[in-house]
Amino acid sequence: MDAAFVPGVAVVTSALSLRKILGEVVDPEIPVLTIADLGILRKVEEAADGTIRVTITPTYSGCPAMDHLRAEIERVLGEHGHDRVAITTVFAPAWTTDWMTSEGRTKLEKYGIAPPRQDPTEEILCPRCRDDGSRLVSEFGATACKALRVCSSCGEPFDHFKEI
């Protein structure tokens, strides 16, 4: 634990370093993405009494990862000496793939998942051969946020992170 944790000495952590700490929390279903990359992490701040207030929003209504993410946020902050954590889940404004960072999109493609497009009129590129021809196999993939496609050029199936 760092030296700032001398009893009686106030710990002041900037919002920026809190975000950095929370960068360790990854999506359990797509572990290359952090909750910040996904846009799930909406706000983090330290209250006057030292409580860390974290605001998150679910990707989909039935996202089964939310309980896990709440536990992870508490665990990671706890490891950095923040024992008082208050997590709020908000629904409005509704999560959109537009909130995914460009870094997140790059990581996603490297991982083999076609990232959500910023402009839905663009073609979806195959994450393996980057060909722009593919067809939809199913509107629903292995998780709620993905659709299943197959590349017309290299013939490989791939997941596409759907724009919503």
Binding site: G62, S138, E139, F140, G141
Partner: peptide
């Protein structure tokens, strides 16, 4: 199989709404 996934995903969305 794809429809199995679709049905499961749709069920999950409805369950999430119900839970909230």
């Amino acid at each position: 199989l794809e429809e199995d996934l679709a049905v499961a995903n749709i069920a999950l969305d409805h369950l999430g709404v119900a839970m909230h």
